[in-house]
Design a protein around this nucleic acid. Structure first.
Length: 365
DNA sequence: TCTCGAATAT
DNA sequence: AATATTCGAG
């Protein structure tokens, strides 16, 4: 039964991941969102019920590594204006930043936090013992550092070195990236938005044009059409890709009913192998948990592109592929357990899939 | 001079 | 792979 619970937990995690992504499509897939939410609720309920049956606090599911990290998040994002965008949808997107958590997202949130915390530490914080520093503080620390350095340099007469020194690497936390995405969305997609505009819309303290530019460049690279992205190991014959349930699928495979994503769920290491074959939009092989924070599987928001590349003539509606794909994959890759233990969510799931497809189709026409 | 995008460096 | 820097163009 512990086993069952654990699986349930994973399942919930996946669902939450999913929900977060669907949130982007709130308008397009309201029902879908609703269904996933319900599914999550249902599962959590189930899990808490069984949990309370067990010894209290045994369940490692939703409650994992709770505790002290909650407030850290907001501190890290020093933002001038608390509501950068006025649309409700966006606000909702940001609501976790503002501090009012809805319990569903909480655990996921924590995951994200810890993860990007790590990354922050990785880049900016040589001392791993200070995980709670706010960005502001870090900045001041950095400044202090710099000034000290400057002093030292003035003393040692090594001023030149300072100019050649590289600036601190900007760590694009998931939150920051979300802001970025939102800005993009507001500006009409990555190919229209310019760094300056984006920066202005993001309203993040200390963020520079250059940083945004660089990030944007990478983002654009990642969001290029798969066929163009990779010179593909030899088989770079132009394949036609079709969006199926959020997946980029070579048309041939789709029509024959196969799914492309060689979901190399090779046990523990969660490889995103497909990237190599289908570009970033390939069926994501990465399983739910580490997906987003593990440094950018760029999850584009709704991006409607007219022939994003110079030589494509089709209109492409990208539906943040990894979003759907992960769940789809999960659903198919380990159906037996999940389906056995949680028959009801399965129904939700199927209906979600169904709705996804319908709405995606309707988007196309 | 500013901004941008691409190329290149770290 | 992610970010920074450089360079040329507008």
């Amino acid at each position: 039964m512990d086993y069952n619970q654990e699986e349930c937990g994973q399942y919930i995690e996946a669902l939450e991941e999913e929900r977060r992504k669907i949130l982007v499509f709130q308008r397009e897939l309201p029902l879908c969102l609703d269904l996933v939410t319900q599914a999550i609720e249902r599962c959590t309920k189930e899990i808490t019920e069984t949990a309370t049956d067990n010894v209290y606090g045994q369940s490692e599911c939703s409650e994992q590594t709770t505790g002290q990290c909650t407030p850290v998040l907001e501190q890290f994002l020093t933002i001038k204006d608390s509501s950068p965008f006025n649309e409700e949808e966006v606000e909702e997107e940001f609501e976790d930043e503002q501090g009012n958590h809805d319990p569903e997202n909480d655990s996921e949130d924590k995951n994200m936090k810890s993860d990007w915390l790590k990354s922050v530490q990785l880049w900016n914080q040589p001392d791993p013992l200070l995980p709670k520093e706010s960005q502001q503080m870090m900045e001041t620390v950095v400044k202090r550092d710099e000034s000290m350095r400057e002093d030292a340099m003035a003393n040692s007469g090594e001023r030149r070195r300072r100019e050649t020194e590289r600036k601190q690497r900007r760590c694009w936390s998931s939150q920051l990236h979300r802001r970025f995405l939102n800005a993009l969305q507001h500006l009409g997609g990555p190919h229209v938005a310019t760094p300056k505009q984006i920066r202005e819309l993001m309203k993040v303290d200390g963020l520079t044009n250059d940083e945004v530019k660089s990030h944007l460049q990478k983002y654009r690279l990642h969001t290029r059409r798969p066929s163009q992205t990779v010179p593909n190991n030899g088989n770079s014959q132009k394949q036609h890709f079709v969006v199926v349930g959020g997946l980029w699928v070579p048309q041939s495979d789709y029509s024959t009913g196969k799914t492309t994503g060689r979901a190399t769920t090779s046990g523990t290491t969660t490889t995103t192998t497909t990237t190599t074959t289908t570009g970033i939009y390939g069926a994501m092989a990465a399983p739910p948990p580490p997906q987003w924070p593990s440094h950018f599987n760029f999850t584009p928001s709704i991006i409607v592109e007219e022939g994003s590349g110079s030589h494509s003539d089709e209109v492409v509606v990208r539906c943040s592929s990894p979003a759907m794909s992960s769940s789809t994959r999960n659903c198919f890759s380990k159906p037996t357990h999940i389906f056995k233990s949680n028959p009801k969510p399965t129904l939700f799931f199927l209906s979600i899939l169904f709705i996804n497809k319908i709405s995606i189709l309707s988007l196309c026409f």
